[in-house]
Nucleic acid binder design. Sequence first.
DNA 1: TATTGTTATACTCTATAACTATA
DNA 2: TATAGTTATAGAGTATAACAATA
Lengths: 155, 155
Amino acid sequence: MTTPDATLRRFLGYDMKRAFAVIQSDVNAVLAPFGLRMVTFSVLVVIRDNPRLRQTQLAEILSLEKPNLVLILDQLERLKTVVRARAPDDRRAHELNITLQGRRLCDRALEAVDAHDARMAEGLSLEERQALHTALRHVETNGRVVDDRRAVSRS
Amino acid sequence: MTTPDATLRRFLGYDMKRAFAVIQSDVNAVLAPFGLRMVTFSVLVVIRDNPRLRQTQLAEILSLEKPNLVLILDQLERLKTVVRARAPDDRRAHELNITLQGRRLCDRALEAVDAHDARMAEGLSLEERQALHTALRHVETNGRVVDDRRAVSRS
DNA sequence: TATTGTTATACTCTATAACTATA
DNA sequence: TATAGTTATAGAGTATAACAATA
């Protein structure tokens, strides 16, 4: 047993929790100067890439609960980066759109996060980096399957 | 743009957040029948592997804050899996040790988490899986470096 | 009756300051 | 004066129930 946590190091969950903790605090630090957090940044990007999106769809895409999205959008509206407008065809719904100012902020933030991401991947070859993304998506998919047969694992 | 979150998919942080969310809820479901969560499980394993460990050291190993560790240990003591004892050489400190009952629980939980981990890695070759671990530790290390020169990234 | 966005709320996780008892 | 463990507390992040407006 070379390190005190050697037993845990064989689990994907453990290595991922540690790696993600590092990334999250780091990305939040990178985004703070823009007035953004990891979630608000993600929401801003998805709104930019999907004009006239509705809140329910946005929540679905990012796996957020609708009530939690409300406060995130309030914050983005306060930053003048996003606007909520009544949908003409369904007056219950809101169409979400990015503003010009939001687009500028989004571009700058994307650049900063890209730079940070490159630093996080330093030391990994392009192939290794691509393999990491592939493996992570693989795990995400495997987990979703496990979700269906929940708690059958053993007891 | 094939998926609504295609832009975000290029970021390690995004793929990791999604993959980890899946793993975490999954592992917690696997551990629930044992009365454990991801953290309590990790703490139990480290105590088993490092007899007479003290709380400050344990907190350091698992990157937990000492105050948060207190409640975790309370819970493990209530389960009769761990005991706190006054250290003979320093009466301020506690020596942590696993009980026989704790050892049994730890073994069964490890088996369950191992089985789950194998399912999460299904579809990945042994080499791919090993590469995933390596890449995650690489990211963890890269992040720690960034930590030192915090907030210098750009603004 | 169902759905969209919202409010209120609660529970977990994480982080910090300050206390106590020892050193 | 400093350290180990603890208490209290506050802030995120996340989850559910119920409501008003609209379909």
